[in-house]
Design a protein around this nucleic acid. Sequence first.
RNA 1: AGAGUCGGUCGAGUAGUCGCUGUUUUAUUGUAAUGAUAAAAGAGAGGAAAGUCCGGGCUUCAUAGGGUAGAGUGCCAGGUAAUCACUGGGGGGCGUGAGCCUACGGAAAGUGCUGCAGAAAUUAAACCGCCUCUCAUCUGCAAUCUUUGAUUCUAGGCGAGUGGUAAGGGUGAGAAGGUGCGGUAAGAGCGCACCGCGCAACUGGUAACAGGUGUGGCAAGGUAAACCCCACUCGAAGCAAGAUCAAAUAGAGAAGCGUUGGUGUGACCCGCACUGUUUCUGGGUAGAUUGCUUGAGCGAUAAGGUGACUUAUCGCCUAGAUGAAUGACUGCUUUUAACAAAACCCGGCUUAUAGACUGACUCUUUUU
RNA 2: GGCUGCGUAGCAAAAUGGUUAUGCAGUGGCCUGCAAAGCCAUCUACACCAGUUCGAUUCUGGUCGCAGCCU
Length: 122
Amino acid sequence: MLIQPSFSFPPFLRLKTPADFQQVFTQPVKSTDRYFTLLAIKNQLEHPRLGLAIAKKNSKRAVDRNKIKRVTRESFRLQQHELSALDIVVLARRDAANASSSQLTKSLEKHWVKLVKQCAGC
RNA sequence: AGAGUCGGUCGAGUAGUCGCUGUUUUAUUGUAAUGAUAAAAGAGAGGAAAGUCCGGGCUUCAUAGGGUAGAGUGCCAGGUAAUCACUGGGGGGCGUGAGCCUACGGAAAGUGCUGCAGAAAUUAAACCGCCUCUCAUCUGCAAUCUUUGAUUCUAGGCGAGUGGUAAGGGUGAGAAGGUGCGGUAAGAGCGCACCGCGCAACUGGUAACAGGUGUGGCAAGGUAAACCCCACUCGAAGCAAGAUCAAAUAGAGAAGCGUUGGUGUGACCCGCACUGUUUCUGGGUAGAUUGCUUGAGCGAUAAGGUGACUUAUCGCCUAGAUGAAUGACUGCUUUUAACAAAACCCGGCUUAUAGACUGACUCUUUUU
RNA sequence: GGCUGCGUAGCAAAAUGGUUAUGCAGUGGCCUGCAAAGCCAUCUACACCAGUUCGAUUCUGGUCGCAGCCU
């Protein structure tokens, strides 16, 4: 589908409907640290897709939630060609609201690598 | 110079690379139609977007009509689409002052409450105290006689009783005006002067209210953000409202006939709606589209007004997402910038806020 | 986004315009040969800030936090 490597982030790279999210939540591959919990599952497409679930309970302020979303999208956008055909849902944990954006970026990069390895077998 | 009061404006900028969401134009491609992809241009969070505390616009619903109940508001005037908010004024409180705060109608319509303390807490009352009178007793002065004791008169002390008193004491948030003089057995608005309070007319003011004058001798508290009375206002729900297209699935809808009974009703009654049968038909959950941004809009100038605000002219178009867009990296400037993210839209209030600039005013000290 | 309710001790939970009950837990003592149970004593509270009132946990307004409902 992607002939030339592009780092854009168009809408079809996102999870949109509740049904998409339910599929990921049924039998996912997990990866957790103190900032994030990532859930992943193989899809039938030729590209990865990203879904965000940033709970209001864990990060109270809208500014914090937006920061987490932006950092996550930016990291996904730059790393999308390393990921195979996966549907990934990112859940933010309580410490993510207070972390700096560089800390979050490092944490996410580890998660991408880990998920690709784990899903290679299944 | 220091301390302080009330406002106003801004709230990171700039250059480059990558990326996100609308709009317009062009090109390619496709459909019954909306489209999809690429490129370019131009746009893209706030002063509070927040809290949801008030008020409106907008939308839907006959439980929207009438009455009761319920809720809210409460000095006067103004302005507004509208408000409990705003502006100006009045009264009260705080502050040396600039200034700040103020739900600020009625307690002689009625009901309730008023703990503890205190003699007494609401048709007032009388513990201590003060005073008159009576009785008993003690002491003193004087007089008389029946002369070492009696009687009378009078002054004082102590005790008991009857009455007067609300000045003084102490309690309390609050005890039936305050101060002074007169007055009285002692006292008391009992009388007088000043202050306070009530009433009356007058003057000023649109009014709230203020002012002086006359007059009444003075009234039994407080609480209505307790019930209540008076005056005024209020239908309810909220864009997750609602509208359109429509997989699934069926318990539905419309018209005609009939209307006794029954059922329902987000407080109750009147009321209102539904229920039966025949014929005809489509109905609307997931999802999508829409509502969705030109509006009581913003800016400038002029005029009116103390001001909130209003009027006129000219100019401008300034987010519209829907798993939800503004970010990341690098360089420079003075520092990693503070509080913090639109979700239908406006007006106000409240709360958070690093810092920068600026206007008016007050007090204290020093110098001239 | 909108609507509604609740904040009382370490935990649970009530009432009220005037002194905050009660239970469990903690601490100390009595009881016992030692424990448990029981009895006695003690400790720690009305979310925060203003207003009304003589007086506020209660009434009123605001702030903060928590929970629930509408999708």
